[in-house]
């Protein structure tokens, strides 16, 4: 019964994670258009090497606008996979945060491989491990990503935690929650490491659990208390992450694509102009004397405005 509930909780935790991440994505993507705030170099600009933009062309609106999407992807993945800016500008910290993040990527890859392995076992009849080449591939990749993920993630997490505690510049800016988040992750990692090293060195139990999950079977392996605690805390972590700033993997898309690299010109008749027309219709309620109550942005910006100024800042 406990095991069945556990299985159910895994489905629920994963579902909450997905729904919450999607909701987060929707929240950011449904925001109104904002004033431009791009920052050069913008990698999709053909002249990005020196940080140039289409403004370097006279009458740019008459020219065909090219975008270098390949370079944008290159820049994105360099940052995502190698955390390049921290490497360039905070090298010491990079030696802790990079293993930490790489550990997470490897654990995600490990999950994906367990998932594929689960599907393989449940729906093709190929056992993992077995002599079948596909099974061999999945088995060894699972072993590699899981082992490396746990080692790098655990050490990286300890490193990030110690770094944050020891470097005054970071410590002064950190709240209790920042440490709680790291400790939470660390506990999950440590329990995962103990489970792996003590009970499941080849991830056979993990693979069996995933196989039961993808086949909706109740044939879940027996889990000892350490593994059980690890699974439950991991589920709680999955649920927790989207509601914290650890969901910056979602935010990062928007900070780059919708702010720093968003340089779409407002050409006449364009989609941008349509959106601008819409937001200029919003009503403004700012209280400073140079605003007039009840006006829209367009009215406030174009009709004669009051020129009162505050002579003194007072209660």
């Amino acid at each position: 019964m406990v095991v069945s509930l556990l299985q159910l909780s895994s489905y629920v935790a994963f579902a909450i994670f997905i729904v919450a991440v999607l909701a987060k994505w929707r929240q950011w993507s449904s925001m109104p258009i904002h004033l431009r705030w791009e920052l050069y170099p913008v990698p999709h600009e053909p002249e990005h090497e020196h940080g140039g933009s289409y403004f370097e062309e006279f009458n740019f609106w008459e020219k065909h606008r090219e975008k270098n999407h390949l370079n944008e992807m290159k820049e994105l993945f360099t940052e995502l996979l190698f955390i390049k800016r921290v490497f360039d500008f905070k090298r010491q910290f990079w030696f802790t945060t990079y293993p930490f993040h790489l550990g997470i990527y490897l654990i995600l890859a490990w999950f994906a491989l367990l998932f594929v392995g689960g599907l393989t076992q449940a729906y093709t009849g190929i056992a993992i491990p077995s002599a079948h080449p596909w099974a061999q591939l999945i088995y060894y990749l699972t072993l590699l990503t899981g082992s490396l993920g746990i080692i790098l993630g655990t050490l990286g997490c300890i490193g990030v935690l110690l770094y944050r505690l020891s470097e005054e510049d970071m410590r002064k800016y950190s709240a209790g929650l920042d440490y709680f988040n790291l400790i939470f992750i660390l506990v999950v990692y440590v329990l995962g490491a103990i489970s792996w090293l003590s009970f499941d060195r080849t991830f056979t139990t993990a693979q069996a659990y995933m196989t039961a999950m993808v086949s909706f079977s109740s044939a879940i392996p027996q889990l000892n208390n350490i593994i059980l605690a690890h699974v439950i805390l991991l589920e709680l972590l999955w649920i927790y992450i989207p509601f914290t700033k650890m969901s910056h993997f979602v935010g990062k898309y928007f900070t780059y694509h919708k702010v720093l690299w968003e340089d779409e010109p407002n050409l006449r008749g364009s989609e941008v102009e349509k959106k601008v027309r819409e937001v200029l219709g919003y009503k403004v309620t700012w209280q400073a004397p140079h605003f007039t109550a009840g006006r829209t942005w367009a009215e406030e910006a174009t009709k004669p405005s009051k020129v009162d100024v505050i002579e003194r800042w007072e209660p």
């Binding site: 950011w28 258009i33 510049d169 970071m170 800016y173 700033k245 910056h248 990062k252 919708k258």
Partner: peptide
Amino acid sequence: WTFLQPLLLTLEYCAKCQA
């Protein structure tokens, strides 16, 4: 609306790494 999205993204996501 003028800067709502970048404002909220910035309030939400700083890792305080000081890079």
